[in-house]
Amino acid sequence: MRSKTFLYSLFFVMAMVVGCKDNPKKPETPSNTSTKEKDSTIIVEEEKPKEEEFKLTEDNAIDFFFDYQKNLKENKVRITTKFGSFVIQLYDNVPYHKANFIYLTKKGYFDQTQFHRVVKDFIIQGGNSDDERTAKKRREIGRYLLPPDTRKGYKHHRGTVSMPSSEIDNPHMLASPYEFFIVVTDPGSYHLDGDFTPFGKVIEGMDVVDEINRQPVGKGDWPSQNIYITKAEIVD
């Protein structure tokens, strides 16, 4: 009887040993091991480097506007102010200056710039501002000048739109592309011929131009009250 009991006990111990081998201990690891392993298999797509935004420079401006004007059909721009609006027609045979004005209009550059210089019975000059947003727009578009184009036979009659030269050391009278002036003098200011580039004329709303020219000014011909271009837009 004892031998049978001994055999039963022996079989029970052996069964326990085998059971322990079949059920090994789970490894002691943090509960988020599987998550980490899964996370490590996620493929992270690398961000593609952003393409540099195009900016105009003195090196690329002429080539750019040469190509830009090839298929350019627009030639009218409406300028709106608190005094009303007027329409400028651009000359087709002054291609770089025309293309520049259309390009800046489409970029929204002139919006919220000012007629910052008003000389009585002479000119109104626009396209500048002492606001930081205007300086920011210029930085984004680029820094460049345009060559004069004074041999197309256009004179500075009343209503002529022309481009001032840059204020920097500028013996070749290169034009400041962000600004423009409109002749108010009747019949014109012909002493400007040959030095500045006429590239368009006012065909509607000259009374608005005259009203701007009548506004009081302070030091440096800057209007006493800011005169904003609220909108510049292409006219079909």
Rank of each mutant, 00 (worst) to 15 (best):
3 S>L: 09
3 S>A: 15
4 K>Y: 11
8 Y>I: 14
9 S>I: 10
12 F>Y: 07
16 M>P: 01
16 M>G: 05
22 D>S: 02
22 D>P: 02
24 P>S: 11
26 K>M: 12
31 S>R: 15
35 T>Y: 12
36 K>I: 08
39 D>Y: 12
43 I>E: 06
43 I>M: 03
43 I>R: 08
44 V>M: 08
46 E>K: 12
52 E>H: 02
54 F>C: 04
55 K>H: 11
57 T>P: 03
61 A>L: 02
63 D>G: 04
65 F>I: 01
66 F>T: 15
67 D>Y: 08
71 N>M: 06
73 K>W: 05
80 T>S: 06
80 T>E: 06
81 T>K: 02
81 T>M: 07
85 S>I: 03
88 I>K: 00
90 L>D: 02
91 Y>E: 05
92 D>R: 05
93 N>R: 06
93 N>G: 01
98 K>E: 03
102 I>F: 02
103 Y>P: 08
103 Y>D: 10
104 L>H: 13
106 K>T: 03
109 Y>C: 13
112 Q>L: 13
113 T>C: 07
114 Q>C: 12
115 F>D: 04
117 R>A: 09
117 R>W: 01
119 V>T: 15
121 D>Q: 14
123 I>G: 09
126 G>I: 14
129 S>G: 09
130 D>R: 11
134 T>W: 02
135 A>T: 13
137 K>R: 07
138 R>Y: 03
139 R>N: 15
140 E>M: 10
141 I>A: 10
142 G>W: 09
142 G>S: 11
143 R>Q: 11
145 L>A: 01
149 D>F: 10
150 T>Q: 04
150 T>W: 10
164 P>R: 02
165 S>W: 06
165 S>R: 14
170 N>K: 08
174 L>N: 10
176 S>E: 12
177 P>G: 01
179 E>W: 00
179 E>P: 08
187 P>D: 09
187 P>R: 09
188 G>E: 03
190 Y>E: 05
194 G>D: 11
197 T>L: 07
198 P>A: 15
199 F>I: 01
200 G>L: 07
201 K>I: 07
203 I>M: 07
203 I>S: 10
205 G>D: 12
207 D>V: 06
207 D>F: 01
209 V>R: 03
212 I>D: 12
215 Q>F: 00
217 V>R: 10
218 G>S: 12
219 K>M: 13
223 P>M: 13
223 P>R: 12
224 S>W: 00
227 I>R: 11
228 Y>P: 00
232 A>L: 13
232 A>M: 09
